Simulated scan of single mutants.
Amino acid sequence: MESKLFSPYTIKNVTLKNRIVMSPMCMYSSHNEDGFVTDWHYTHYISRAVGQVGLIMIEATTVTQQGQISPQDLGVYRDEHVGGLAKLVKGMKTYGSKTAIQLAHAGRKAVYSGDIVAPSSIPFDDTTKIPKEMTIQDIKETVEAFKLGAERSKVAGFDIIEIHGAHGYLINQFLSPLSNERTDEYGGSRENRFRLLKEVIETVKTVWKGPLFVRISADEYHEKGNKMADFIYYASEMKRLGVDLIDCSTGGVVRAGIQPYPGYQVRHAETIKHEASIPTGAVGLISTGIQGEEILRNDRADLIFIARELLRDPYWPRTAAKELGITIDPPIQYERGW
């Protein structure tokens, strides 16, 4: 029987050789708060391309220095960042992987020496800074920063862009009533809370014609947070705006006692895929080829995002293929040992 996990998948003008995606995971490996690619990034990402991952999405890459998740995060807020990113893209593509970048702004969860910003002046918890409530001008400048980040990503040669709207970072903060208490056009109703993401998507699409993904946290684990009906609304609006796939994670906007189990987030991807009629990616403790195959064969998602398992095993596609009883082609240099 032909494997779904190892079947090609085409989005607009980009064809992935399989449905395996390396999920974005921060490496905290840039130096001196400069946001530049280092030797670690070349080793880390290119080895997964050698391992035959279909799509490699690099870590959350900040569109402003103020929006960094940590001072060691990659950045795309300066033209000087493009050279290192372009070299990284070239290395990954050499071994047949398609490439993606996740554009991010941490908002109130930023670790930054100066002021941090958020939709409302509410800290993430008792140990973090109190953010400055964003003015309309701050919002406009941030939307522009996402656009400039997309332009630089295009110059660097990425195949796909993902907008980070999950895990309690800035866009998620605007989407959630738990962190957004604004009374202007960016707060209140879910239509207003969606406005920032809407403007980011629209602005990015003025400079980016390739596939566009958005990662969301499709469960906030709080009775006063967004519910599935809200996420279906957001996903339907994103589809209308031209987003190609929703990457479905959960949590992060507030501290919550999440009890994960294998595939615990797949049901969110499945519901959004069918209720909003948009392709989705499933992520979260997916560790075997059998799991990935089951998700795809039962039409629960369209792509399988692998995170920690790819930290443990850079050649996880080979491991999954052996588990499924199929053969995939190795890099020619590894033929004797594949």
Rank of each mutant, 00 (worst) to 15 (best):
E2R: 05
Y9P: 02
K12N: 12
M25K: 04
C26Y: 00
H31T: 12
H31Q: 13
N32A: 12
E33M: 05
D34F: 03
G35D: 00
D39K: 11
D39P: 01
W40T: 04
H44L: 01
Y45Q: 05
I46Y: 00
S47N: 13
M57I: 15
I58T: 13
T62F: 05
T62W: 01
P71Q: 08
Y77I: 06
G83T: 12
L85N: 08
G91A: 08
K93F: 09
S97A: 15
Y112C: 10
G114K: 01
I122V: 14
I130K: 15
E133F: 03
M134L: 15
I136Q: 13
E141F: 02
F146D: 01
K147A: 12
R152V: 06
K154E: 10
A156C: 10
F158Y: 14
D159T: 09
I163K: 03
I171E: 02
N172V: 01
Q173K: 09
S176P: 13
S179H: 02
T183L: 10
T183H: 05
S189L: 06
S189M: 11
K198D: 09
T206C: 00
V207D: 07
P211V: 07
I216Y: 06
S217T: 03
A218V: 02
A218G: 12
D219E: 15
D219V: 02
E223M: 09
G225R: 08
F231I: 03
K239Q: 07
R255G: 11
A256P: 06
Q259S: 14
P260G: 12
V266T: 14
H268A: 06
A269G: 08
H274T: 12
P279M: 10
G289A: 12
I290R: 13
R300T: 10
I306Y: 15
W316D: 07
P317E: 11
L324T: 00
P330I: 02
Y334C: 06
